[in-house]
Write a protein that binds this DNA or RNA. Structure first.
Lengths: 251, 251
DNA sequence: TCGATTTTGTGAATGCCTTCACAAGAGCGT
DNA sequence: ACGCTCTTGTGAAGGCATTCACAAAATCGA
């Protein structure tokens, strides 16, 4: 009954496995304990790189790529330095090579199979989202609990019943699941997923999920996003009001 | 042509407006420069509180609420301390009062009108998402650029053409927009929104948006979320492989 | 009234992330 | 070969966030 990790601070133990020349000779140690904040940005860099790749740019400087990704160039360089030295001083980064390196780091070398659980409005929209396929993910199973939906076809796939989850997960070798189910059903569905062997969950239900420590959960809370925007908007307006009040008082 | 803010680090000037008894007597200074990380969690606490409210709990301790929200109790107490002292030592927090206080801080005292731009699969799903209404937001306008969709009705609202954006935004007093448009159209739509007076944008298109400094952008990148999960999953498996290799070498 | 118990609010310590600033490296023209 | 220019990679510094740990407050029972 462990609690959902706050932000995937993961990075298991503080094992400090650097590229020191230890007693054995690893082929490619390749990861210098990439920080969580960096991982989140690698995905953005990858998006920017594919954009550059399409317009056939061979190399890109940290400054250019940083602008395309909307970050500071120093930050970008430090981020990339965690993957190793893939840039050339005075020239920049090779777009092709950097793309592949990031993909390898993110574990996208092979197309990853994901399961989509819950075919309400949101689930249907996610099933049709082209961005998943184009960025390394294949929806390998669509699952729901409603008997009137199970068996129907959606995007060329047959909707499976959640009771068959174990079988589906194992046969398609699925490690990642996307949950778009009602909040009331979320924990139960989550438990089933974990029992079936899923180790990573993207949760759209507005609930905190309890999972064992080896399972990662990321949540997308749409209303929370709006509330955060609302806070800033409110602050902007209060300041404006203050300024107006000041003027009126002074007048 | 300024660049999208990285994470809404906002908090405008470092004006340091504490509750010191200055020359004038503000009615309720009430905000001690709430940190960004705290704002993001306030939304979660609010969700947990409404859950408690429904089961008619009058007061709640930081420990209980922390568990319900999936965070550390010390963190929760520090977060709440930014709003002022709304707890009672030895007792806990009054659920009703705390709920109202957080809502006020987030600017949810009045129902906020939002515009939804783009009625593809995702846009339609968002239009039907009950979570918006139940958590302080009213979809006051639905907008698209496709003439064959404009004029049709969706969820009791008529889809407006994007050319009428200015009028719609002004008449409904909209400050927040949700963009669910194709990446190729995102920057143009964004510019129109800003021109119409929108100051906060929730962007579902996988693009970096350029906005003037007074506009806040938050993005939801679904594929990026999966890629982050993929990274951790990949790391888990590599470690497992390492362990296996170790055993084989030792055998 | 007083001590025992509970729980908040918060200084202080720690750790993570970002930013700065620059030495070291790579190409290029002469 | 050499100096000039460009750009990376990274120590060091600074800032922000989390966690710790405890004094201060509040209630309760005797």
């Amino acid at each position: 009954m462990t609690v959902q990790r706050d932000q995937l601070n993961a990075v298991g133990g503080n094992a400090d496995q650097r590229a020191v020349a230890g007693p054995d000779q690893r082929p490619v140690p390749e990861l210098r304990a990439v920080p969580e904040a960096t991982v989140a940005r690698l995905a953005i860099y990858l998006r920017a790189l594919t954009g550059l790749c399409e317009q056939e740019t061979a190399t890109v400087s940290s400054e250019e790529l940083a602008i395309a990704a909307g970050v500071n160039s120093a930050k970008l360089r430090k981020d990339l330095s965690y993957l190793g030295s893939y840039g050339v001083r005075g020239v920049g980064y090779d777009v092709q090579m950097l793309t592949e390196q990031i993909q390898r780091t993110l574990g996208l070398h092979e197309n990853r199979a994901v399961a989509l659980i819950g075919i309400g409005h949101l689930g249907q929209a996610l099933a049709g989202y082209a961005g998943f396929a184009s960025r390394g993910f294949r929806i390998a199973a669509i699952v729901d609990a409603d008997p009137s939906i199970v068996g129907t076809r959606l995007r060329g796939m047959t909707v499976q019943h959640i009771a068959t989850l174990d079988e589906v997960v194992r046969s398609e070798n699925i490690a990642i699941a996307v949950m778009a189910v009602p909040a009331t059903a979320a924990q139960e569905v989550c438990d089933r997923l974990v029992a079936a062997g899923v180790t990573s969950i993207l949760n759209f239900a507005p609930t905190v999920l309890s999972v064992p420590p080896h399972v990662d959960v990321r949540k997308v809370d749409l209303a929370a996003e709006l509330q955060i925007l609302s806070f800033h908007d409110n602050r902007k307006n209060s300041s404006a009001d203050w300024a107006r009040d000041e003027r009126e008082v002074l007048a």
